[in-house]
Write a protein that binds this DNA or RNA. Structure first.
Length: 408
DNA sequence: TCTGGGGTCCTAGGACCC
DNA sequence: TCTGGGGTCCTAGGACCC
């Protein structure tokens, strides 16, 4: 989905279209002002320049991106860059709603969907046929061809057919998503998930990109390695320092040289992905591995001096986690805490129980044991509680069905 | 004016078992 | 009279993703 959170917000605040808007933080909802005589409603939006706090931008409209604003950027930093941009608070419930809408619309056309976050999916289009479309009838039986050359030709023709069919399917998907949500998305059709993901960003927003394996040298190799899903800031910086600034350069790097510098597994993986190779399946059903809640405080808290406040937040986190767990229909055996200190260093502590738990009190008790083992000398900026080693709760078919549609 | 919140996967060491 | 070779589970940290 294109600039998903921001685009959802523009649906309800159309007067912001065309303006730089940033989504982030949580305490600055627009004020509605009703004119007592006319009854006309005008909204007063928060100005990014007035923001004070520790929030980051989750999404920026394309107009805001032109001013240098982008996701994961601190809002205070963004405020210095573009003080007159509009700031809207995040509304996850609303985004989840639109997420379900677009996924449902897609599922009607292409049922083999892999969830990849709230605003992304992978689709297996192998067996998708548009109903009512003239797709040349039944697939040709290659065995009917009289000789090898004819079989080859028939195979090529059938591949070409599939290619144009996939393009029509992608067009139909975009139309269905727009009908269901009023939102635009960008789609790429490619031989695998790796290439589809990269290609889907080549023509954003509202893109439709068709990419064949043979296109990799011309269209993928010029891109920086960072565009590959799995090459983040660290690996990218290291590649840069080694003089590798494009995916093509990575493809031409020696395999053993890469493995020596990045480890056997990661080095071999870098080599494969640079050549566009990826054999991962589209996974249509998956269970969550962990569920967590965390919060960053408005000011750093001391374990001694702010004990009461920390305790209240800790309990609240355990209660929200227990609610999430119940809503999704799971119990878990491993409870963990996460602490981030004033110097941004992060520690975690885990505790595994003999039997799965799900209640807030049991979670709070186990998390308390973890907390006792954590260093508590520095001031704390973030506290989190997590539960893993999950087992679905028997008898909660409703819950499981909800998980199947909500799991993002 | 430092850097959210929700996740997944990988690595590495140690305990423990056969 | 030095300490094999598997395997699993648990813990902690870190890179990465949306």
């Amino acid at each position: 989905m294109d600039a998903f959170y921001a685009s959802v917000e523009l649906l309800r605040y159309p007067e912001l279209r065309g303006l730089p808007v940033v989504i982030g933080g949580h305490r600055h909802a627009p004020q509605e002002i009703v004119d007592p005589t006319t009854g006309m409603v005008t909204r007063k939006f928060a100005r990014l320049g007035d923001y004070v706090g520790r929030g980051v931008a989750t999404t920026a409209t394309y107009e805001a991106r032109r001013l240098g604003l982008h996701s994961a950027q601190g809002l205070m930093k963004g405020a210095a860059l573009a003080p007159d941009a509009t700031l809207l608070p995040v509304d996850f419930d609303r985004y989840r709603h639109y997420s379900r809408l677009f996924k449902r619309a897609v599922r009607e056309i292409a049922p083999r969907i892999e969830d990849h976050g709230i605003d992304e999916i992978f689709l297996d289009l192998s067996d998708v046929r548009l109903s009512g479309a003239d797709d040349g009838g039944a697939p040709r039986d290659l065995a009917d061809a009289p000789d090898a050359a004819a079989r080859n030709l028939a195979a090529v023709e059938s591949e070409v057919d599939a290619w144009w069919r996939a393009r029509d399917v992608a067009k139909a998907l975009k139309a269905a998503v727009r009908d269901a949500t009023g939102l635009s998305c960008s789609i790429a059709v490619a031989p695998n998930k790796l290439l589809a993901k990269i290609a889907s960003e080549l023509d954003k927003p509202d893109g439709l990109t068709m990419l064949k394996a043979a296109d990799v040298p011309t269209r993928i190799w010029p891109l920086p390695p960072r565009r590959i899903n799995g090459i983040g800031p660290k690996a990218s910086a290291k590649l840069d320092a080694l003089g590798i600034t494009s995916i093509g350069a990575l493809a031409h790097a020696d395999l053993t040289w890469l493995m020596d510098r990045f480890g056997r597994n990661y080095g071999a993986w870098l080599h494969r992905v640079a050549h566009g190779e990826d054999d991962r399946e589209v996974v249509t059903d998956s269970e969550p591995v962990s569920i967590s809640r965390e919060t960053t405080f408005e000011r750093d808290l001391s374990a001694q001096r702010d004990r009461a406040e920390l305790g209240a937040i800790f309990t609240e986190l355990c209660e929200s986690l227990a609610r999430d767990l119940a809503r999704k229909g799971y119990a878990g055996r491993t409870v963990g805490v996460k602490l981030r200190f004033d110097n941004f260093a992060t520690v975690t502590r885990d505790h595994t129980l003999a039997v799965p738990i799900q209640g807030a009190q049991a979670i709070r008790h186990a998390a308390g044991l973890c907390l006792k083992r954590a260093p508590l000398t520095r001031r704390i900026r973030l506290l989190g509680v997590r539960i893993s080693s999950l087992t679905p709760l028997a008898g909660d078919r409703d819950g499981l069905a909800r998980v199947a549609t909500e799991h993002e």
